[in-house]
Design a protein around this nucleic acid. Sequence first.
RNA 1: GGAGGUUUAGCUCAGCUGGGAGAGCGCUUCCCUUACAAGGAAGAUGUCAGCGGUUCGAGUCCGUUAACCUCCACCA
Length: 862
Amino acid sequence: MLDQKYDAGKVEAGKHAKWIEKGYFTAKGDPDKKPYTIVIPPPNVTGKLHLGHAFDTAIQDSLCRYHRLKGEDVLYLPGMDHAGIATQAKVDARLKEQGISRYDIGREAFLQKAWEWKSEYADTIHKQWEKLGLSVDYTRERFTLDEGLSAAVKEVFVRYYKEGLIYQGKRIINWDPEAKTALSNIEVIHKEVEGRMYYFRYHLTDSDETFDVATTRPETMFGDVCVVVHPKDEKLNHLIGKQCINPANGDVLPIIGDEYIEIGFGTGAMKCTPAHDPNDYEIALRHGLPMPICMNEDGTMNELCGEYEGLDRFECRKRLTARIESEGNFVKEEKIVHNVGHSERTGVMVEPYLSKQWFVRMKPLAEDVLAHQQDPETKMNFYPPRFEHTFAQWLENIEDWCISRQLWWGHRIPVYYHKETGEIYCEVEPPKDIENWTQDEDVLDTWFSSALWPFSTLGWPDEDAPDLKRYFPTSTMGTGYDILFFWVARMAFSARHFMKDIPFKDVVLHGLIRDEQGRKMSKSLGNGIDPMDVIDQYGCDSLRFFLLTNSTPGLDMNYSTEKIEASWNFINKLWNAARYVLLNLPEGFERKTPEPHNPIDHWILRRLNETMASAAANIERYELAMAGNELYRFVWEDFCSSYIEFTKSALNGEDEVRREETRQMLAYLLEAIVCLLSPYIPFVTEELYQALNGEETSVNEARWPEAIAYDKEKADAVEILIEIIRETRALRSENDLKPSRKLEAVYEGKLKIDESLQAILTDMCKLQIIEKLEGETMVRPLKDGSLSFRLADIVDKEAELAKIEKELQRLQKEIARSRGILSNPGFLAKAPEAKINEEKEKQASYESAYATLLNKKKELAS
RNA sequence: GGAGGUUUAGCUCAGCUGGGAGAGCGCUUCCCUUACAAGGAAGAUGUCAGCGGUUCGAGUCCGUUAACCUCCACCA
């Protein structure tokens, strides 16, 4: 028997291991079933999972579990990402603790350390997935650096290369001096920072004339090749063709004209550093200027910088500025707030840097995706749809993707240079005479491999791989909007190009989880919440239910302890409801398909059927919160507060047949509830399912409940009774009437109170119907909220009169409103007929309620 | 400079195709009723940010203003 209190720790322990052992989540490939596929967004092997991962996977897992319940062949494919820079940085940091740099131990040894790190953190992640209860198919787990995926990466690189979609070029890229690697544009985060604008005085070589030039990065002056002014700038264009002195190093710089310069902006004259600024680079290209690099890879100054060689870029900036000032060429400095690029991973300021890198030509790939999205039949669907605009806009304005990284941890670029001829060899297989070739030192952007995830994990490049044939394209991609560009867009063009298809039918994008005050969770604020701590305290089910029912697709949500507790309360409620049911099932109870007998059975079946249909519809359009809240309401209000209360008299009564019927109903309802909730709260529902059906059963093998037919009239009757009962209970307590006292109620209307309904009334509120009309007891529908009692026995007349008065006023208002609408010619002419009739009925019912209540008032007053 | 989001009960937020405003928590009153007091019953509270428009009818659609937020792109 279940414990008195729900204990999440006890319930959740050991379950996941058993599920895996039983193979419930291994996709069987049953051809009679519809395939449903989700590939997990592979977490980085850099550390622990955070709340965002928990959110991601809660959504994916609940979808998978739902589709399993629906009898589909579900594949939830797990895997992890090697996370190039991020992991390498972690391993570097670990080595640093031991006083070693990666260069001390070399590439091979470093990679070994990295693999050790990987297996360590993969373990952690597996444990966390287990705690999260994920129904992933471990027989198909992948890693972005495993053999198969590496083969896919090589294949893709080679094919792009041969199609001219990958090229090598010298360009200004974003350089991370900390990680000493190039970055792609989206790995750069622009942050507003306070900086300074320095103004320096430049002297012409042939006269005493001077002019000012402003810069935020004085240290780059060692890479300057000219000064630029606008050809039409009347104040400055006379300088074009002359020469000036670079105050940093005394170099003679030509002054040129270029329309890039904005007249009137700054001083009107700009220094040009082609190797350290993308715009300057363009100018230098146009004018055929040299492009000297003045910085080392680690952000220190190089040999071009004389006395500053070896100094850090920022230190050089300080000292150089001071020196120029001492030489009298410093004009002023201003504090400014400007956007500066920072490395997404290391956080350091990114240096625009001229460098030879590999790029993917994005235009044709992006255009293919955009064109394909025009077809409403076969396009990817975005939830919420607005993200498709963001997605499309990004693709429309896309620039080439810098994919080479000067790292060791990653997919090595499959390009070989001939030691003598310099010839380039790019094939999946290395050249036969490998000793004559040198492989490119660089590795690929980590996103290059994740871009292939939906098909590389299924066996591609083997086009005939059975999983690829069966499970691709995948069904749903559930992830945060923050990686729409990084990942979703790149999967989209990769799948288009290599699979000639979309990678997934639906993209569900959720928001970020913020802290209780709505701030972003961050390490520096220390406001991050570890999902594992939450699980330890409240259980995985509470966490999942919280995440799934308190979020709106695409919007950020705030973490809330209060709402986690509310989720816990709900599960505890479910637990106790189950306990009630189980306590009332006798030894050796045999389950049968129940048949509704009592009116309340019909009513609860209708509520169940409505809830099932609506929950399914909502889950299928990814409105998990709506579906979850409906289930919550059904369980708490309909099942617990009403149905269970109704069953008490039956179960305590003498009528054995009725008892048995009630037990069958309860067992059926409990099982249905448990199944419906299992996608959200898999652990506790498993516990309850087994308590009901036996230790060896599993909710993982259950199917979506079968609906049972009900009688609508009986269901309607109970709907009304519930309202009567609630009203009556309120009266009883407010007026301090004893339960034994008979409260006389007068109802009029359509509903026939048969014995079973009378029994309910008697059981629930000791209410006895004594008014008889034409030999039958009648009650009046209370949909409009009115209720009329003969209150002769009620002690507190004043209070009752006040209540009636209030109600009369309300009705009066409603009648006025209704009359207003019905006398509106526009409404009568244009509203649908059903609406008009509905309104007329309402009006009639308000008026009759009003009349009845007025009589009551007179009667009571007299 | 572009694109988008948010503004609804004291707090946190739902409210998806326009037809009498909801939940959780909190608050008030009553109840230890034999599944649950982390419970049960009842109850109060809203110029749905402002303005304008469309409509018979707008929290919901359109425009506009304001505040806050996010992303993208950026000029030395």
